[in-house]
Design a protein around this nucleic acid. Structure first.
Lengths: 225, 225
DNA sequence: TCAAATCTTTATAAATTCTTTATGTATGGA
DNA sequence: TCCATACATAAAGAATTTATAAAGATTTGA
């Protein structure tokens, strides 16, 4: 597997060392630059997955480096700074900084923020789905597939199925299901449930008479598996 | 101009008020929820561009709310908390929080972070054209071709088609489409959508009665394929 | 300014979904 | 076993939603 590259642009050797140790122990490959000029060069030649930039550089204004990078570099750029003035933070963020941490920073938090930023930058298309053998619920697209084929559900059917699927294995009472899908005043309309469960089974089960997914829990409710 | 929607989930009315005033003065439309349950419901029906979530909610653990939202909600979620323990921050970030701010927070910084997060989340599609079988959208020239021939669309029709095409395969709600194309005050004008979908189908479908691209998802919205 | 194009609103038929009713089957306790 | 209750399913009727045409209002461009 290829390790993620992180570029650290900071003139203080001890900060670079600290970041290097922490990042490498979490599986990142670390590139180091001690000046803005060198940082821009490394960024251009390696296109790292993330850049950590210190605003207090000797050769150039860190803000300038940020702007130069942002002309073409679209991955996350984290700002490290001793400056805690709100105006500086706002400026940096509006210049395209992804995050801004003030020194001294907590390494665990920095690493968590780095994980998040890289992940968001890696797969911007979030395909969250629930899978149950032949059945698949795509929560973002709001679609249900059975053996890869789209199943056409009404909005109420989808709502009901989603609720059951999210609580896989748990028995959901009639009361609860009615309350969540239809609303508080429908808690006694158990017949609605029967009708909709029947039509759901017809659509998602191979054999609605002996369901593999949507089970009846007599006198209590329904359960999805 | 269509305003961005931000959902604030916080049980303290004064924090909600503070956020509302600040966000609205910067052009956002603010939705408010005082409990986790209410917040999840609002998020599901409005799909706001960003959610601000207080971890210290009365009815549910804020962390739980975050997880529930992240099952399907992919836009930024900001955490507000009085807790400044590193472990809590790391947990929240690893559960999918986009950012974590501790109270008291600086509103200017919060707004800058919100701007950045929303911008990064906006469609990062940099492609020049989108292709769907017989249909082709040229994003630079703002032209649509069907089997190579130019299709003449009005700007509203183009805008609507572009939005659907950029979210290929996803069901886009009436609410969302109306908000994006016409603006936030048109969210209830579902009839506009019907009229424009009909005219789009007449122009881009072989047989508008049985569409191959622009599908109706009853009571929910439309989907492009 | 005028004509054409586009957007908004209204009207109505068609399609879909929800609710209710009816009927037969299954379950579990006395 | 019988009986009361719960469940499954089909189907009819009610309500809602959608598609579409077309008329009126507004905007745009020559």
């Amino acid at each position: 597997m290829n390790r993620m590259q992180v570029l650290v642009i900071d003139d203080e050797p001890q900060i670079r060392k600290l970041l290097q140790i922490n990042l490498e122990s979490h599986g990142y490959q670390v590139l180091q630059a001690s000046s803005g000029r060198e940082g821009v060069q490394l960024a251009a030649s390696f296109s790292p997955e993330l850049i950590i930039l210190d605003l207090g550089l000797p050769d150039q204004n860190g803000q300038e480096v940020l702007k130069i990078l942002r002309e073409w570099y679209s991955a996350p750029i984290f700002i490290l700074s001793v400056q805690d003035r709100e105006a500086d933070i706002v400026d940096a963020l509006d210049c395209g900084a992804t995050d801004y941490l003030t020194k001294p920073f907590r390494t665990g938090e920095l690493l968590a923020r780095i994980r998040g930023a890289i992940q968001r930058n890696q797969n911007p298309i979030n395909t969250v789905s629930l899978n149950f053998g032949d059945l698949e619920l795509d929560l973002i697209a709001r679609l249900v597939r059975k053996n890869g084929e789209l199943v056409k559900l009404t909005s109420t059917e989808y709502h009901l199925l989603l609720l059951l699927a999210k609580n896989e294995g748990k028995v959901l009472t009639h009361n609860y299901l009615l309350r969540e899908v239809w609303g508080y005043s429908y808690q006694t309309e158990t017949q609605y449930l029967r009708v909709f469960v029947a039509s759901l089974r017809k659509k998602i089960e191979d054999d609605p008479n002996s369901p593999k997914h949507l089970f009846t829990e007599n006198r209590v409710g329904y359960r999805f598996q």
